[in-house]
Design a protein around this nucleic acid. Structure first.
Lengths: 334, 334
DNA sequence: CTGTTAGCGCTTTCAC
DNA sequence: GTGAAAGCGCTAACAG
C-alpha cells in the first residue's frame, strides 16, 4: 500500500539504486531519469522512509531529552529550541520525563534510551557523578543544559546561576537594600540544580557584603510560598525589604496579594525574579533574563556535531544573562 | 562497539533467533538458555534496538503532532499527556510546529510526516477540508484534539467550545450582568479553531437572551489587549460590566492594572476566563476548567488503537468542562 | 550514468 | 526448545 523504492523502481523501469540516488544524490542521476523517477514517485505518493535509511547507518534519528516531567516555561522554551534545530535534520526528541526518585532510579538503572537514541541531552537536572557515568556507558554523546558539573558531559550550555543571583543582589544593594530574602522551593533541588546555585550564590554574596543580611526562605513543594514569605516578613522586627524569587511566575501571587496585606510594591517591598518569562514585562518585574530557546538551539547543534564525530570548538558554553530593570524594585522605605 | 543480537548470540553460543526470542517471547526459551543469554546481554551492555525491530514491521514508532509553534499552557499539557501514554509503548512524538501561513502551506504540500509517522495528531488547529484530505493520503490514522470538524478524522477529543462559552455567559447573566464583553485575538483564528467557536457561542447566546448585550472585542496579536478592553469599557456610556477572556493568562494583566484605572475586580468589573490553568486558582479567577492532559491521553490511546487496526468504540469524544467559581465574578455594580 | 548486490539488526516462519 | 534463513526498505560499494 505505501510505496517503497522497489515499487517506484519497477514502475519507472529503473533500478532501486537509481531511485535512491534520485533522492539522496540527485546530481548523480541524469536529468531525464530523474524527472521520470520523480514523476512516478509523485504518482505513487512515495517519499523516502527516513527510518529505513537511518537504520542502515545504525542511527535512530532520535535524541533523548532527560528532564522533569512538568513542562514549565523554561522546559517549553528548551523544547522549542531543540526541536527547531533537530526537526529539520529529521531528528526527533524522545522525552524522558523524570518526575520523582523512583522514575529517576529506574531511568538510570535500565537506561531505556540505550540503543534508542543517537545522543542524550540532560536539561536542568542535578545529575550525580555516578548517573553521569552510567549515561556514558551508552556510548553516545551527552550534552547538558543548565547542569551542575560538566564532568562526563561532551558539551554543555548553561547560565552562571551563581553570578546571575549575585547580579540581583548587587542591584538591590545598590538601590539601598540591606535585608534581602531569597525564596526557593526545597524539593526541586534534586532535579534543578540551578536552584541550589542561585541560593548559594545569594547567600555567599550577602555574607561577604558588609551590613547585608541575606535570608534564604525554603518552602516545600505545594506550600503557599507567598504566605511563607509574608510570615517571615511580618514576624520580624527587621524584615527584609526585598525578595528574590526563584522564578518569575512566583512573583504573580505577590503582586496579587501584596495589597491585601497593606504592602505596596515596590515602595514597601521590592521583588525581583529569574527568567524574564512571558508576563514579566506586563507585570513590570525586574528580573534576570535568560534565553533558554537559544541555549537549547546551541545544545542541539553541538549534539548533532558530536553525532557526526565533530568536537565543538568550545564545548562548554556559559550563556549570557541580563539584568532587566523594571518597576518592581526600588529604593527601600526609609 | 554497541553490541547487537549477533554479538550476544556468538558470545552465548546460541543462535540469533534465540537471543531475539529471549527478549520478545521469553516463554519460548528454556530457563537455562534464557539466563545465559540475559547474563551475556548484560555483560555486553546489550539492549534491543527498537528502531530495528520496528523497521522490520514497517513501523516508525513515531507519532506526528501538528500544532502551533509556541508551546503554551495548553500545548504543554497536550504534550505531557501524549507523551505519558506513548512513551511507554516506545513511541515518540515528532513535533511539526506550524507558526505561520508559509509553514502551513509547506507542511500540507510536502507532507514531511509521510512515511515517517505511524499516526498523526492534530491539536488545536483549524484545519480545512482540503488539508484534512491531504493528510489522509498518507494512509495513517488521523486524530484530532480540539479541532473544528471531524470529517476526515479517524478519532477526536475536544471540548464543546460553544457550550463552554455559553456556560460563562449564563453564569454572568445569572449574577445580574446584562452587558458582557468577549476579548479574543483575531489572528490566532487560523490555528486555533476553539477561539472562533467560543466567540460565536458567546455572540449567539447573547443575541438570543433578552436584554443582554454581547460585545466581542477583537485584538490583533501583539496588541495591548488590556488597553483595548479598557478603552472600550471607559469610552461607552453603558460599558460592559463583565469580560470574558479567551484564556486565563489574559486575566493577569487585568488584575494587575485594574487598580491603576480605579477599577476594582469584581465589584466594578467581573472577569472570567477559560482553561483553569496554573495560576487561575491563585488569582481567584472564575473560569471554565478543561483537562488537556487527559484529553491528550485519550487521543494517544485512540491513536495507538487505530495503529493496531482497532477502531475505538466511541471515536469522537466530547470532553467535559466545568465551571469553576472563584472571586473574580460577582454581581454587577448597581 | 546506471544496475547488481550485500547487508544494516531484528523478527519470524519453517524445519529439525 | 533451538537453529537456519528470508526479508523489512534503504544505501553504498562495485561493476559495467
Amino acid at each position: 500500500m505505501r510505496a517503497s523504492v522497489n515499487d517506484v523502481a519497477r514502475e519507472a523501469g529503473v533500478s532501486v539504486s537509481t531511485v535512491s540516488r534520485t533522492f539522496t544524490r540527485p546530481e548523480l542521476v541524469s536529468e531525464r531519469t530523474r524527472t521520470k523517477v520523480l514523476k512516478v514517485a509523485d504518482e505513487l505518493n512515495f517519499s523516502v522512509s527516513r527510518s529505513a535509511g537511518a537504520f542502515k547507518n545504525g542511527q535512530t534519528l532520535r535524541i533523548a531529552l532527560v528532564t522533569g516531567g512538568h513542562i514549565d516555561w523554561f522546559s517549553a522554551r528548551i523544547f522549542e529550541g531543540l526541536n527547531s534545530v533537530l526537526h529539520e535534520t529529521g531528528y526527533d526528541l524522545s522525552l524522558y520525563a523524570i518526575d520523582n526518585d523512583d522514575d529517576r532510579a529506574r531511568f538510570f538503572d535500565q537506561l531505556p534510551a540505550n540503543r534508542n537514541a543517537d545522543a542524550i541531552i540532560v536539561s536542568s537536572f542535578d545529575i550525580t557523578e555516578q548517573e553521569s557515568e552510567r549515561l556514558r556507558t551508552m556510548g553516545i554523546p551527552v550534552v547538558g543544559i543548565n547542569i551542575a558539573a560538566t564532568t562526563g558531559f561532551d558539551a554543555s550550555v548553561g547560565i552562571d546561576d551563581t553570578a546571575a543571583s549575585q547580579i540581583l543582589v548587587r542591584h538591590l544593594v545598590a538601590l539601598g537594600h540591606r535585608r534581602i530574602a531569597y525564596l526557593y522551593e526545597r524539593s526541586i533541588s534534586p532535579l534543578r540544580f540551578s536552584s541550589y546555585r542561585r541560593v548559594t550564590g545569594f547567600t555567599e554574596l550577602c555574607d561577604e557584603l558588609d551590613s547585608v543580611t541575606g535570608t534564604p526562605i525554603a518552602v516545600e513543594h505545594g506550600d503557599d510560598f507567598v504566605n511563607a514569605a509574608f510570615t517571615t516578613l511580618l514576624s520580624r522586627p527587621d524584615p527584609p525589604t526585598a525578595i528574590c524569587v526563584h522564578q518569575d511566575s512566583w512573583a504573580i501571587p505577590f503582586f496579587l496579594r501584596a495589597r491585601r496585606y497593606g504592602i505596596h510594591i515596590p515602595d514597601d517591598l521590592s521583588i525581583v525574579g529569574f527568567d524574564d518569562s512571558d508576563f514579566a514585562a506586563e507585570a513590570g518585574l525586574t528580573t534576570i533574563r535568560q534565553r533558554p530557546r537559544e541555549m537549547a538551539q546551541l545544545a542541539a547543534r553541538m549534539a548533532l556535531d558530536l553525532i557526526d564525530g565533530k568536537t565543538p570548538a568550545e564545548p562548554h558554553v556559559t550563556a549570557p544573562v541580563q539584568l532587566v530593570l523594571r518597576d518592581s524594585a526600588a529604593a527601600p522605605p526609609r
